[in-house]
Write a protein that binds this DNA or RNA. Structure first.
Lengths: 127, 127
DNA sequence: CGACTATTTCAATGATCGTTGAATCATGGG
DNA sequence: CCCATGATTCAACGATCATTGAAATAGTCG
């Protein structure tokens, strides 16, 4: 490799797969929502004061790091969330506008349903 | 058995389990919705002209009888549908009012979402 | 560089899933 | 009473799931 290239900060990190919103199927979305931990991640994310500022590490009360990573992947691959890397930290957010365009009204009722139910664990995310 | 008893028509058949609507958990509902055949059953049922008049046998285009029975059970055990026996036939219906009370607004957006999507198979049910 | 932190990946586990086809059960009609 | 019909149950299968703990990776900072 040429010497000059190293000066450019790559800042890429391994890119995680996000499906095109048009390719997302209803059955896969519901399957991704069919787990209490993932519903907990979703409502906690929805109730986070600042959008796109929730660190993955903020969810450790819900499960172990490796299990969280597994559930993050499920939500991401179902087109519900987006994972963004910044240095050594990853931020998680809901794909609100896209998802609303693809499935109008659905995410709101899902979140409202999960929010209302005591069986769904939730945490307070401090940004 | 006494002779007179036989005149009374039993009309019971094996009772299938239906959960109390209060015991139904959001994660289990979404898990039940996480399959294209079950979404197909749900929208076909929702689009049936006459309520509570859909025979189980009307869904045979969606899957084999035994597979249908399996999917019917999933929907029923998740509190979404009700199965009613009448003679040798079974009728399937959506637990609309109860479900609406338990999870306001949810079923409508789910059905609308499934209805809009071409990946969800659907049939016309002639009552 | 080397330690440190945040997160993902891997390997392994038992459990549940979706599917098939054969067997069973319940009911109504000859 | 036997047979046909509508539907569920059972046994089996390979696939995927949720979970665990250990190992790998990526970036930061001394």
């Amino acid at each position: 490799m040429s010497g000059a290239a190293e000066a450019i900060k790559p800042e890429v990190m391994k890119q995680l797969f996000h499906p095109e919103i048009e390719d997302v199927l209803p059955a896969d979305v519901f399957a991704a929502l069919g787990d209490p931990i993932r519903l907990g991640i979703l409502v906690s994310l929805a109730d986070c004061d600042e959008v796109d500022k929730a660190r993955c590490g903020a969810f450790t009360e819900l499960a172990s790091p490796s299990l969280l990573s597994y559930h993050f992947a499920k939500l991401r691959e179902a087109g519900i969330t987006r994972s963004r890397a910044e240095g050594t930290v990853r931020f998680l957010s809901i794909r609100r506008e896209e998802f609303e365009r693809r499935f109008p009204g659905l995410l709101d009722s899902v979140i409202e349903t999960a929010r209302r139910d005591p069986s769904v664990p939730r945490i307070k995310i401090d940004v």
